[in-house]
Design a protein around this nucleic acid. Structure first.
Lengths: 206, 206, 206, 206
DNA sequence: CATGAATGAGCATTCATTCAT
DNA sequence: TATGAATGAATGCTCATTCAT
């Protein structure tokens, strides 16, 4: 009646698989990665992987989900001690230039997300993307609303548009960074930060 | 002895194939598109396709190349009658909100480019991406340099960084637009335009 | 954790495949035999075959290798109780007229070897043929050297040339036998035996 | 009514194709040679080749036929001024060590013949091989019969067996020579010549 | 629970042959 | 006659998924 192995054991195992998945999918992409690659990378047998996940697709999605959650976690943690809206935005930009973001795994994660977006956008799973996006959108949007209420950012600002613009910029820069070695990532993000904050303070004119 | 068929005929045929390729790769991506899909979409036999291109990969790359060239062509055409730098940048933003850019084929093209970037970034073909990127970068960079010399844009502006930021924003917005139906594309691009132009006039502070 | 399947099981499986391969390659040759033929003949799925061998080529080569080893084994076994050199050569000729050599499988094996030789001789795999040939050459050469030392065969004999001549004759006769039904194989081999042994005793004159 | 082009023209064209065929089939074998290879090698269009021959197979067979005829021609020419049987056999052996036999084209021709034999022997075309073989067999057989009648060769000789043995040896040596670079062809043929002639003079004992 | 052998549909590519010009 | 573009059946190989042990 009691499960043979603990729930923790199972979760641990899933984590292991997802960890390896992040590596292999990150370096070869979804389509070019085979289950055998995953077996090799994880040291876990094919049967076992299929015991925990019902398809390659599912492994991939769990990996993505976990990366999104992790990212959200990191972002909200960063805010916990910051109270100014502008300051929060600044912290966010700084996060994207921090050391932890410049390591391979993070960029691989970005590639995974983008690949999934692009490949998946052709199907009926748009809804899922919308859900993910909304989380990120709302995070920024609420910061900006706070700022608008407190007068920190321009009253004329359309916060939703500004939030979407924020993530467009971030994703655009990450995309270029993950693809072009010559992209002067740090400098560009710094430039973007100045531009964006200045824009927030001045607001939309149109 | 008979001079076979004209070069134009062959070019025409290649175009036909590439046209069909844009459709099928655009809706299913490189990996999920089969040569049979292409055969069906183009109405051209498999053998014939292989007569003109030596692999699926090659069809794909020719399609991308052609799309890049077409885009560059459109961009430079737009500039031919514009002399102010700021004006040129404005025209560019306007282009991305024009009717022709809101049609499916264009967004499919974007998806294709991005998919290729992301999937390809894992290998040794970075050089090709760099080359493509450089073309786009230089286009903006030289506009900004002109503007700096003429005093239209801030003297303090690092034009190269600003150019890279420009394309990051554009690609980021296109990415979101091509993936998220709810993305208020027109408004966001308009917002970005204001933010960016205002930034150009004020320049980097750091 | 469970120790999968035994090594013997795997070897057994490989043998099964090779056995079937000998049949189908034997009757249709390398090029005209398809993997589907092999699947049908072996009753083993395509995937399984590719699990054990990484290409059609590899199946073929393992089959050849195994046939060579088997032949060498049979030859050396025959010698174990024979001490005279001339006697050994005689035993060899007799082997080639024995019942087991007149069955289809054996002749198919010969055809396989020859086909591989001929088709392969056009490439860089000569080295492999040389290696195989050397084994056969050395076998005869050492017998003849023994015979020369013991005075059984002519002192004037160039043993290496004689060894090469031996295999040329054997292969030539097998070739004709495997191709021409009217070739009076038994009689010819018997004739060759007398000619060759008489030649050994007399030696080269040139 | 009169043919548009002369018969000679057509024959000339066929010769050209066959010439090129000998080269490409000789270096790559029947299966690995494509019609495009033949087009490239001959400089004649695919359509034209199919105008003169109705299939790849047919080109191949005409090429073989022509090589057989050529060989027979050369052999009989060599005999025209030789009257002794033993002398004729000697001349034959010498032919196979002559300069013209050591050139690539000849060995390619051998490979072609052998490949065709081996690959074809699996089907219903044995009859054709028998016919070819018979020509060669009869050539030697009649020489030996003459010799037996004149007392030059042993009365006890079974001329048919001896003839078959002759060609087995020749083909065996050519096979080895065409496959093994280290095969000391000249020496071996010389050795074979001595052995065989000595055998003829002594005859079968069995 | 774990293992990896087995399955077979699916895919890119080749190539002999045909045929419009 | 000559040309080479077009055809499509055939083929070797891959890989997600299943399942006996």
């Amino acid at each position: 009646m009691t499960p043979k192995v603990s729930e923790e054991y199972k979760e641990e195992k899933k984590k292991e698989i997802i960890q390896a998945a992040a590596t292999v999918f990150g370096s070869n992409g979804f389509y070019s990665t085979t289950m055998d690659d995953l077996v090799k990378a994880s040291g876990i047998s094919k049967g076992a992987i299929y015991h925990y996940f019902k398809s390659k697709e599912e492994v991939y999605e769990h990996m993505l989900q976990q990366q999104v959650e992790q990212t959200i976690q990191v972002l909200t943690d960063k805010f916990s001690h910051v109270h100014s809206s502008i300051e929060k935005i600044a912290v966010l930009f700084d996060l994207y230039t921090s050391n932890e973001w410049l390591k391979e795994p993070k960029l691989n994660s970005v590639r995974n997300q983008l690949e999934h977006w692009i490949a998946g956008s052709r199907e009926e799973e748009r809804a899922k993307f919308e859900r993910h996006s909304k989380i990120f959108h709302d995070l920024i949007n609420s910061i900006l609303e706070e700022g608008r209420d407190s007068g920190e950012v321009s009253r004329k600002l359309n916060t939703s548009h500004a939030a979407k613009l924020f993530w467009s910029m971030i994703d655009g820069m990450l995309l270029h960074a993950s693809v072009l070695p010559s992209f002067s990532y740090l400098q560009i993000v710094k430039t973007a930060k100045e531009m964006y904050i200045s824009f927030l303070q001045k607001g939309n004119l149109g």
